[in-house]
Design a protein around this nucleic acid. Structure first.
Length: 208
DNA sequence: CGTATTTGACCAGCGC
DNA sequence: GCGCTGGTCAAATACG
């Protein structure tokens, strides 16, 4: 970990049995699932922007004891707003978390952003090996577009959160280099609770 | 019949 | 200014 450039990433907990899809949080919080897949296959990078619009790409290590997102109540897969500083750290301590569950992200580097029109929207992207197109993150999404993008034979799908008043969007596309991976990009912060997360937040996590 | 998805058209940003 | 590209809209279509 080079610096504390990037804001904290948060995740959420979701009912493993609610949906057969390999959700991000299911994988991260369900040891069996996690173990079966192997973390190296789960994901190997995160990319996100802070509220200033600066973009980062982070690689993180993959031992079983290192969980790539911090699990916090009802936050969803978002970039956590930091009201006090733009230098919140990915390595920051979280009193309510086991140290084994702390995020372990390495080699963060700034990327050149496409434009200044980020609208202050937080953005987080991750890459997960799955045969499914859509990761069930606990929110309900409405598909509003599909587009072929340059240099990628796989289409990019566009979704909006279907909750009234919530403007969060996400893009889903297959990785150009390895189509067995799906790249999901979230943009914005949900203005509401995830329908599932709060129920399961207190579910005990075990990574024996 | 209501809701979700598909898909072509349109628009805006960017590079040349 | 023009063409390319990505993102969004909205009418048509599919589905339960």
């Amino acid at each position: 970990m080079s610096t504390s450039l990037a804001p904290t990433i948060t995740g959420m907990i979701q009912p493993p049995s609610s949906n057969p899809n390999p959700t991000i949080t299911n994988i991260l919080t369900n040891h069996n699932y996690y173990d079966d897949l192997g973390f190296d296959q789960l994901s190997d990078y995160l990319a996100f922007e802070d509220q200033l619009g600066d973009a980062y790409t982070c690689n993180f290590s993959s031992p079983l004891s290192n969980i790539p997102v911090i699990l916090q109540e009802n936050k969803g897969v978002i970039l956590q707003e930091n009201n006090t500083s733009t230098e919140s750290s990915l390595n920051s301590n979280h009193d309510d978390m086991d140290s084994n569950h702390a995020v372990q992200i390495n080699n963060c580097s700034k990327r050149v952003k496409r434009s200044e029109k980020s609208d202050n929207a937080s953005r987080i992207a991750f890459r997960i090996k799955t045969e499914l197109e859509i990761l069930d993150d606990g929110y309900k999404w409405r598909k509003y577009g599909k587009k072929m993008v340059k240099n990628n034979p796989n289409p990019r799908n566009y979704y909006k959160c279907s909750t009234v008043g919530c403007k969060v969007k996400k893009r889903v596309e297959r990785d150009l280099k390895d189509s067995s991976y799906v790249i999901t990009t979230y943009e914005g912060i949900h203005s509401h609770e995830t329908p599932h997360a709060f129920v399961y937040y207190n579910t005990q996590m075990q990574f024996d």
